[in-house]
Measured scan of single mutants.
Amino acid sequence: GALPANLDDMKVAELKQELKLRSLPVSGTKTELIERLRAYQDQ
């Protein structure tokens, strides 16, 4: 599914939920979580 547009405004817990939905690792800082989601979306 498409990512929420406001990733930077989301809480870390919400970002981790998005990562879990995509079976991605949820470790790292908020910035790393956002980068991981964006990289996944670009595939």
Rank of each mutant, 00 (worst) to 15 (best):
G1I: 15
G1V: 03
G1S: 03
G1A: 00
G1D: 02
A2D: 15
A2Q: 15
A2C: 09
A2K: 15
L3W: 08
L3D: 15
L3I: 13
P4K: 13
P4Y: 15
P4S: 14
P4Q: 15
P4L: 15
P4D: 14
P4I: 15
A5V: 14
A5P: 00
A5R: 12
A5E: 14
A5H: 13
A5L: 11
A5K: 12
A5T: 14
N6I: 09
N6T: 12
N6P: 00
L7W: 03
L7G: 04
L7R: 01
L7E: 00
D8Q: 13
D8T: 08
D8K: 10
D9M: 11
D9S: 13
D9K: 15
D9A: 14
D9W: 08
M10Y: 09
M10R: 02
M10W: 03
M10K: 07
M10N: 03
M10P: 02
M10T: 02
K11M: 05
K11C: 08
K11Y: 01
K11A: 13
V12G: 06
V12W: 04
V12D: 04
V12T: 15
E14D: 05
E14P: 01
E14R: 07
E14M: 11
E14C: 04
E14L: 04
E14W: 04
E14I: 01
E14V: 08
E14S: 09
E14G: 07
E14Q: 09
E14A: 09
L15I: 13
L15Q: 01
L15H: 01
L15G: 02
K16M: 13
K16Y: 08
Q17G: 07
Q17D: 05
Q17W: 02
Q17A: 11
Q17N: 00
Q17K: 05
E18R: 02
E18W: 01
E18A: 10
E18G: 01
E18T: 02
E18P: 00
L19T: 03
L19K: 01
L19S: 05
L19H: 00
L19F: 01
L19V: 05
K20G: 10
K20H: 04
K20R: 11
K20W: 04
L21S: 09
L21C: 06
L21Q: 12
L21N: 09
L21F: 07
L21R: 12
R22K: 04
R22P: 02
R22M: 06
R22N: 02
R22E: 07
R22F: 00
S23W: 05
S23F: 06
S23V: 06
S23A: 11
S23E: 12
S23Q: 09
S23C: 12
L24M: 09
L24T: 04
L24R: 03
L24S: 03
L24Y: 00
L24G: 02
L24P: 01
L24H: 00
P25Y: 05
P25Q: 07
P25S: 07
P25V: 04
V26M: 10
V26L: 14
V26K: 06
V26F: 10
V26W: 02
V26A: 14
S27T: 06
S27M: 05
S27Q: 03
S27L: 03
S27E: 11
G28L: 00
G28N: 00
G28K: 00
G28Y: 01
G28T: 00
G28H: 00
T29D: 07
T29Y: 03
T29M: 03
T29C: 06
T29H: 08
T29E: 11
K30M: 04
K30E: 05
K30D: 02
K30S: 06
K30R: 11
K30F: 03
K30W: 01
K30C: 04
K30N: 04
T31F: 05
T31L: 08
T31D: 11
T31A: 12
T31M: 09
T31S: 09
E32F: 11
E32I: 07
E32C: 07
E32Q: 10
E32V: 09
E32K: 06
L33N: 15
L33V: 05
L33R: 01
L33K: 04
I34K: 10
I34Y: 11
I34M: 08
I34H: 07
I34R: 08
I34Q: 13
I34T: 07
I34G: 04
I34P: 07
I34E: 07
E35T: 07
E35V: 07
E35F: 05
E35M: 05
E35I: 07
E35A: 14
R36G: 07
R36C: 08
R36L: 03
R36E: 02
R36T: 08
R36F: 00
R36A: 08
R36H: 02
L37V: 05
L37G: 04
L37K: 03
R38L: 06
R38M: 09
R38W: 06
R38D: 02
R38I: 09
R38Y: 09
R38T: 06
A39C: 15
A39S: 14
A39L: 13
Y40A: 15
Y40M: 11
Y40F: 13
Y40V: 13
Y40L: 09
Q41R: 12
Q41C: 12
Q41V: 12
Q41E: 15
Q41S: 12
Q41H: 08
Q41N: 14
Q41A: 14
D42F: 06
D42K: 11
D42I: 02
D42T: 11
D42G: 10
D42R: 06
D42C: 11
D42E: 13
Q43V: 15
Q43T: 13
Q43E: 15
Q43L: 02
Q43I: 11
